[in-house]
Design a protein around this nucleic acid. Sequence first.
DNA 1: TATAGTTGTAACCATTGAGGTTGCAACTAT
DNA 2: ATAGTTGCAACCTCAATGGTTACAACTATA
Lengths: 144, 144
Amino acid sequence: MQISSRFTLAVHILICIDTFKDDCKTTSDFLAGSTNVNPVIVRKILSQLKSAGLVNVARGSGGASITKPLGEITFLDIYKAVDCVNKGELFHFHEAPNEKCPVGRNIHAILDDKLLQVQNALERELKSITLEDVKSDLKRYLDS
Amino acid sequence: MQISSRFTLAVHILICIDTFKDDCKTTSDFLAGSTNVNPVIVRKILSQLKSAGLVNVARGSGGASITKPLGEITFLDIYKAVDCVNKGELFHFHEAPNEKCPVGRNIHAILDDKLLQVQNALERELKSITLEDVKSDLKRYLDS
DNA sequence: TATAGTTGTAACCATTGAGGTTGCAACTAT
DNA sequence: ATAGTTGCAACCTCAATGGTTACAACTATA
């Protein structure tokens, strides 16, 4: 299984908003054009980003804007905002191992902290990358 | 999305094989009893673990055994063996962003190395945990 | 050698979740 | 008042997971 494309989509949307913020109104229709997904999907993601306090969305008049400096928005913020993994748990357990087996009875408790440790490593890395990094990379690509 | 329960299931199975190796024949039926999943599922996972060289499975007579010391089997070995993520790529990209948009045209290339960096962090952590760690934890649980 | 117990695998089913789409009420700058 | 939006509900399709049955192939052993 893979982490939902909502994550890369959200990054794409945010960078798009920043890139075009001075040139046009970044509506869900406009963003749908760049990402090539349905405007409703864009609105759903914008709504999640808004709940996380990363963007403002103007009802009526339309258009989205980013609330903070790009350097203060990490991949982890976005990852959490779009809620890619079920209930925040990266690993899925097989349900109902046999309680009568000494292994089955304890496997969950034993693995829990180890899996959490792995998940923390993932999140730590996500936290180390910001939208500012993406922006400066994009600049390099556009200049060359 | 979550990482398939095949992973935790595989760990469970391997620890089970080790725990009961001296007391009984660890057949797919026996392992299905402890994990509480269908024997066919167990066989499928055993088959994947076998392809990865982690276990031997005896046809005909039946029973599985582990090929190396537990300290030499890492969570990463198991994770790769059971092939939890599609094509080895943890993140799923939205297909076909608009090539005419400067952001859409470059987003994939820009994100690729960053996402790989995150994936590497995950795998590095998985590599640091071995079945021996699980075994010693199990021992602690059973003694107390 | 016949048999019983097992593995390997194909074929199918049910359920779930993701992503997509339409439609429409609510909102707001002009 | 209107035109352009957003927010959201309702529905659809598709793919992947996990589950199940069925059966051929295999092998220790009686």
